[in-house]
Amino acid sequence: MKKQLLALALIGGLMTAHGCADTKKKNTAEETETAETEIQKEEVIEVQTPNIVGVAAGNENFSTLVAAVKAAGLVETLSGEGPFTVFAPVNTAFEKLPEGTLDGLLKPESKATLTSILTYHVVSGNVKAADVVKAIQDNNGSFAITTVQGNTLTASLDGENVILTDAKGGTSTIVLTDVEASNGVIHAIDTVVMP
């Protein structure tokens, strides 16, 4: 009888040990499957390039421009499908304006004027720096660019720099080119151009 009890205990112990091993294998398999699923989920996540407003908002050099775009109510427009090319004044470009000009433009009663100025910096289409240079070279040294505002900017070269001349004869130099956005491209300029 002792032998039978001992044999039963031994068989029971083996079955328990075998069950634990199966559970460990099952848990390990589930953990591996879960880890693989998480890795697959991570691989599927795509980094989305922000739109023009998002790119500008993410760069401290365009904080004044972003404030102006918000004041003019152009966030939705410049977040649209596009494509747009924006000649975006950096903060120091706005600092060159006569004292009090920017503050006056940001007031609600100046919204129409501010909108006109800002849309003068926008062109329909995705125009890369190389396209601008080629157009200048193909047109005897200068090229008229029609803006969304309706007036034109004249692009020319000064050495390797692209210069924009506005309707009032003021000039601005492109200081950074081809900043990609999901709905177009940004070229940074060092002076605000005026229609």
Score class of each variant (00 low, 15 high):
2 K>G: 15
12 G>Y: 01
39 I>F: 12
62 F>T: 00
67 A>G: 08
130 A>S: 14
187 H>A: 00
191 T>K: 10
117 I>D: 06
161 N>V: 01
125 G>A: 10
113 T>P: 01
95 E>I: 01
51 N>R: 03
98 P>K: 08
167 A>S: 14
126 N>Y: 13
186 I>M: 07
140 N>V: 00
29 A>H: 12
176 L>C: 03
4 Q>P: 00
140 N>Q: 12
166 D>T: 01
164 L>H: 08
171 T>P: 04
83 P>D: 13
194 M>P: 02
26 K>D: 09
143 F>D: 04
75 V>F: 11
25 K>G: 06
98 P>E: 10
59 N>T: 09
119 T>M: 08
182 S>N: 07
105 L>K: 04
97 L>S: 08
67 A>R: 07
58 G>Q: 11
61 N>D: 15
189 I>W: 00
137 Q>K: 13
166 D>K: 04
74 L>C: 06
17 A>G: 10
48 Q>V: 15
80 G>T: 08
37 T>L: 11
126 N>G: 00
30 E>T: 14
33 E>I: 11
167 A>K: 13
166 D>W: 04
87 F>H: 01
68 A>R: 03
61 N>W: 05
169 G>V: 02
112 A>G: 06
66 V>Y: 13
107 K>E: 13
132 V>P: 00
99 E>Y: 04
53 V>F: 10
60 E>V: 11
125 G>R: 06
172 S>T: 07
10 L>Q: 12
31 E>Y: 12
142 S>I: 01
128 K>N: 07
187 H>Q: 00
95 E>R: 02
102 L>G: 04
46 E>T: 14
54 G>K: 09
46 E>Q: 15
10 L>K: 13
35 A>Y: 03
83 P>W: 11
26 K>Y: 11
139 N>D: 12
127 V>F: 07
84 F>W: 13
133 V>R: 00
133 V>I: 14
68 A>M: 02
